[in-house]
Design a protein around this nucleic acid. Sequence first.
DNA 1: GTAGCCTTGACC
DNA 2: GGTCAAGGCTAC
Length: 981
Amino acid sequence: MPFENSSQDGDSNQLLLKTEILSSSPPQCLIYQKLPIQQEQNKFNLNNTKTTTKCNNNLINPNQIRQNSGQKHLNINISPISSCSTPTNCSPPYNINIYGNNEQQQNIGRLIRSNSVKINPFNGGESEATKTTTNEQQQQIVPSFLQFPTDANDGNDDNNNNNDYLNQPFNMARQPNLEHENIGRFSSLPSTPCNTHLQHPFVHPQQQQSSSSSSNLQQDLGNCPICNDKVSGYHYGLLTCESCKGFFKRTVQNKKHYTCSGNKNCTVEKSNRKRCPHCRFQKCLERGMRTCAVREDRMRGGRNKLGVYYKQDRAARSKILQQSNTRSSSTTNQQNTHQQQLMIYANGLNFYENNNSNNETTVTRSNPYANETFSSGVKAKRAKREVASTYGNSGVHQQQQVNSKYSSAAYLGGLPKQQDQINSNITSHQHCSSTMTGFDVYLQSPTLSSTSSTNSSANGIFGSSTASTHLSNVDNNGGLAMLLGNSIQPLEENHEASTSIAPMMMNPLPFHLYPITSAHNAHTHLQQHSSVSNNKNNIPPSVAVVHNVGGNSLGPSSSASSSGVSSSGLNSPPLPIPSSSSFSPSSSNKYASNIHHQLPLVNVKNEIPSAAIHATAPLHPSMYHQSSAVGYSPIMPITTPTLHMTTSLHVTTPLQPYLLPHHHGILHSGGPLTTNPHHQSSSEHQQQLLPLCQMPPIEGVFYGNHHQQQQQTSFSNLNGNGEFTSAGGRLLIEELCLSPQLERPVLITLQSIRTCGETYNSSLDFCLQVITKHLDTNILWAKVDELFKGLNENCRSMQFLNAWAALHLIDFAYALLKGELSNKINFPLSDGNMGSIDTHTLALLGCTELFNEWNAILQQLRNYQFGKADYVAFKYITLLDVCFYRAPNDPPNIVSQYDKVVQMHDQVLHSWLHLRSYSGNPSIAKSDSLHKFSQLASKCVERLRSRLNQSPEIQNIPGFLSEMLFTNKNVGIGGGTKLVD
DNA sequence: GTAGCCTTGACC
DNA sequence: GGTCAAGGCTAC
């Protein structure tokens, strides 16, 4: 009997509690007991309801003993702290959690100090070594109990502290976060950040097999992504605290409308979360809380369909952390490994690169999962395991270096040209014979970040471009540190640096694909480009890309001046304006080596604190979110690629998650940013618990017969004709936002392109592929969209034919504003090299001459704090635009749908207006940005059509693009391919 | 109105 | 029967 006996003498302060833990290892026998308390008498009733649980795992499940609220039980959890890398090595020390109120905890504390509580682990078949360890721990365990645990890192790591503990009060004030359930937590080892015995809720592999593995998440779920309070569980689609859960519920249930007395950019923290409910609710929405998970019928209990997602997300977190923890236990750098875990979390982990075209000599293992069609979670897990198995003893820096080294991956945003540089860095500084898949690189790359958008926020999309060039001037270590180590530095260390450098780093350098170090190089480069262009794309050399040529020239000055794009920011150098040509076939990797000291400089060096460029002072990720104004979608699409952000000629800035090195909890990845920059700026110390799995579209959230009707509410407010009704009480635009086809369509497009594994003759070739693939993406959306189905097929085809280009622009705009995309997209050329194209060029259908207008639109949207609802509204309103119904020869079947289209259009518009009004920002409503998209799209189409008309490449236009560009027939898309199945 | 605690109930 | 994410209750 583990708790052999207990007794009391009527005085709770002198309660005698004899406890034994029967430990046999492996597996150890873990025991806990619930001790009901007669609280009103301040006594422990030890003769009542003894509950003993034995687990075959090395760590007891804390949730199994969590306080049964309302029953006034004192729960004592005694478990070994599993810090071992393998089960067979597990042994005490033990961790004791006492659950109860303050007084109860104090009583137990006194008992422990007085050694009235005895813990007597013994071995059952252990090895001698383990026995020794166990015995040693047994000898030490009582004093160590007195060391307060983890949350307050007192720095008290003296395990050998002897008798002082007997006089130490249990000062609960030291653990402000241990209210409620876990009010007294005693560890036999201090849990400091550097403690290799760092407690971790996902400790043992066996734990994952237990039925209650998921419960372990609740031991320490981190902090609420809304207010930074302690997370209590999944609530309405997100891991949040109890208060935000309640707040969200009240707001939705009561249909509350808040207004912000400020600028709608209030910080939301635990201390001030009551201050501005408007901003708090906005943050809830932005971080992913789902209004649809609030039951309209207010029925209690039950589960909803989000449970599947919760389970997946929980499993993914648990497994990844478990795997990582196993490895991390053997590393000497716990924190780095933990950060590695966090980055993995933040990334979604489904994008890998198997193209090691130029690194074969160093890559000895290809990605074994390249051809597998896992969900992201599986990929993430496998990738995580691979990372852990290969680099378990490596710090983040090392891993990132190696990752980047072997990343051929820059295909969708990386910089292959950097690989040689990285190779040299790796070789010179740290030889690593380990292999690494390209996929692993993406484990290091946060899915969402804000480099460009943050930059854009400050200076416009094509704002100043200083930092990257400056970065190029640092030494190899510094550059590599910047390149690879942004997530490593604690927030405080480089705050100044990040603050200073952020606005500069945010600026993309479009078309600075290659580090031209001299005029000769540039010339050679241009020659090659011209050659490729002429041979492959029939694009005159005169329009080939122009590169920087030494000095301060960041871009083709002539092109810049002609384009008329002005630099923004006082310290901004001339803007790197793309050449007039949209297509610049390149082979950047040929210029990868020997670039580091020869990059063109920009006169901004003095603006950057030395720490920022020091080799060992990598930029902190705060630089990415300190001023970002990008949308945030916390949902990790299964097929979402993780992209790098190219920020300079040679520095690929991995989009970093928010890493909180000082936190020792579970998960605190951030990365994705909020639409409102303030939300993020205030959350540097917030842990963002991003869902790892894709949130399912909720079409009827709740199970059960009672909700059969509600299961139809996804579009229950649409009748069979696609007409909007107010049934259900939810705005139409809110319903439309749930469409899975509107979740990062651009990334899905790029992922599909990447999956194809094709090579391209030129940038034009690749650009056409992107256009075509994204056309497919939007066709799919239009095909399955419930609202759009309300129109007949010809009408739908006409609408889509009219809107497709604008939809393309809107998608790219939103993706860029959200920071989903790198500023450059790299792609494999047919000659084996890597090409690169500016993302904005892809957005503009290759028409870089329209950058001015594009930039203006993006800036305007940014000012509007363009969010998901706006994006969705723009898409639908564009798709349902009827402006082209002016053609006198429109067939009757089209005209007949006119009223319906107008009706649907107005429904979306009104719904959107209502929503924006609700959120306090109606100014965007029906803004001219919407029209500008259409106008710009028309120009893009016109130019692209003209260009292709002059090019034989038109024969190779894939998919429906040709028909989109050149057909005027009122037929189904693709010359008969209807939008209906 | 907030937020902690409690109850409920479908799913496992 | 346990889990846990819903909604409800209520002290503040």
